[in-house]
Design a binder for these strands. Sequence first.
DNA 1: TTGAAAGCGCTAACAT
DNA 2: ATGTTAGCGCTTTCAA
Lengths: 340, 340
Amino acid sequence: MATIYDIAEHLGLSPSTVSRALSGRGYCKEETRRKILQAASELDYAPDHSAKMLKTGVSSKILFAVPDICNPFYFDMIQGINSVLEPSGYLLILVDTKNSLTEELRAIQLLREKYADGMIMVSFHFCEENIEAINRLNAPVVLTNKYESASGQDRFNYVYVDTHAGIREATEHFISQGLKRIAYVGGPASEQTGYERYCGYRDALLESGLSEPENYVQEGDFTENSGYMAGTRLLSDSSELPEAIVAANDLMAMGILRACEQKGLSVPKDIALSGMDNLSICERISPKLTSVELCAEEIGGRAAELLLKQMKNDPSRIANVRLQPRLVVRESSRSSVLNV
Amino acid sequence: MATIYDIAEHLGLSPSTVSRALSGRGYCKEETRRKILQAASELDYAPDHSAKMLKTGVSSKILFAVPDICNPFYFDMIQGINSVLEPSGYLLILVDTKNSLTEELRAIQLLREKYADGMIMVSFHFCEENIEAINRLNAPVVLTNKYESASGQDRFNYVYVDTHAGIREATEHFISQGLKRIAYVGGPASEQTGYERYCGYRDALLESGLSEPENYVQEGDFTENSGYMAGTRLLSDSSELPEAIVAANDLMAMGILRACEQKGLSVPKDIALSGMDNLSICERISPKLTSVELCAEEIGGRAAELLLKQMKNDPSRIANVRLQPRLVVRESSRSSVLNV
DNA sequence: TTGAAAGCGCTAACAT
DNA sequence: ATGTTAGCGCTTTCAA
């Protein structure tokens, strides 16, 4: 592949003139410029991205790190991210951290090595170790969880959806229907994301004076299959069936649905069900799934906007973004008996 | 950020020794090595990826270009691609070409500028212009359509699913049920992908001596919404309703389903329906959608394998891959009346 | 308006 | 086992 030196030599010019002509920065006579453009095309010239990067320190790429590449939620986020970043000339590098701290640290390391100019990171569990690594970074990072270190000196921003409120709303939705035996299938309670959502469920019960029945809280890992298994456990004791199940995300709700089908239980007639994420699939499955909308696309878009601002070193104080969830009630939680 | 020079100076060594110690290539006394590693960590050293790239010519990234980032089919492909590429240390850059030739050429240009070491490209319509651009490339490319230039000197490989056979099988499935008025909703017939699939429908009809009723072939663009509109057109003349509709992909089939619902028509009782891609959602919607399985994940995996081979310059003759589709019959095409 | 030259951070051939 | 040096391809300051 030809370089600017080849072009320069070909025309008896200097590389710097060629560089100026090609980049459009700096003086260059129109005629010279024309000749250079022509020679570039003749010699099949293409600028070398790595050389440019080395010199300018700009990679024009951003990293998007997700805990589970199989979850459609993140693809909705990608739409939002891409719609903001692509017009600004950024490319998206997709990294699957497999919900592993080691892999998250690896993604952070990629940023240290300047694979990208910035990163949007989704994690179920930000902890001292990865937060510290992020704070040490020079490159901007946007998270999708609320997180504030004790020091208050965090070097990242976040776009945050109040999932606690979302799960609480879903739980209250069942309570207001007069349902009492409300079960919950969450993510790992040991992780931030899982714990927050669980608290939404617990607080809703507490506030209405309901008790949290034993064995009514099951843990999954946000995958469809873990939802199926948790659902199966919940339904195993047919003498104590829950009247409703709140799931911490749609994928698990779908697994629970499958478990219900298998046990011959009808949703919502026998058991009411709600999910969270409001994936487009909620609208299409049968019964249509009641879900807490988190606006994946908007999260992605807002995160990308924050990142852009940080990368441009926008002086305007960058605020974290808090989004409110919204319960979308569909068939799976409208008991025909109760007719709510 | 510290460089190997900083480390070298810090220890009174030369940069090359540091480089050798860090990369593990070339001689280095164990003790020196230890000291270097320690200094690297103290100085918070991280290798600069662009410098490495410039020197070695290797980017450790591959491009995945898709015509529509909203189609879940490609996310299934990503699973397959990532599962193969990630263990080999490659990162994935996602590019949305929006089914536009210009954008496709842009993706190709990215490769010329060495943004990545190779590319997997999905396009509905390979034509002389983009194929030529690909052939001019030095970097390896794998396509997901069958394509052979007249010259026979193509510099790419492809993973190919015989969609013609797939659509034909779906059409025959309806014919074998005794259905006669079979409509088709395809992609743009002016594009390779759309035309191939249409021919599968046409040939199935021809072979069984059925005529292709007027206005029974509608065009969409593979999105859900275009399917809805095509479906609406097909169902507008209630005196001539089709008995079955073959859709060229699942997203459009889903749109058609929506159109049927809106017209108060039941699937499969009033109209049978089939899609293509066999997205996981087919299993979950109601009625469960009959679909031609294309094995997105396998396509991705095989494409990634071919690409790896080409990048390693594997001497073993690289063969193109042809995958056979498989019709998965579900509720949407099992007419309860016919009881097939 | 153009050119010369240095340098971005790394690797690797060669010399010591 | 370690050091010297050149160079990957580009940008940019400074000089002409």
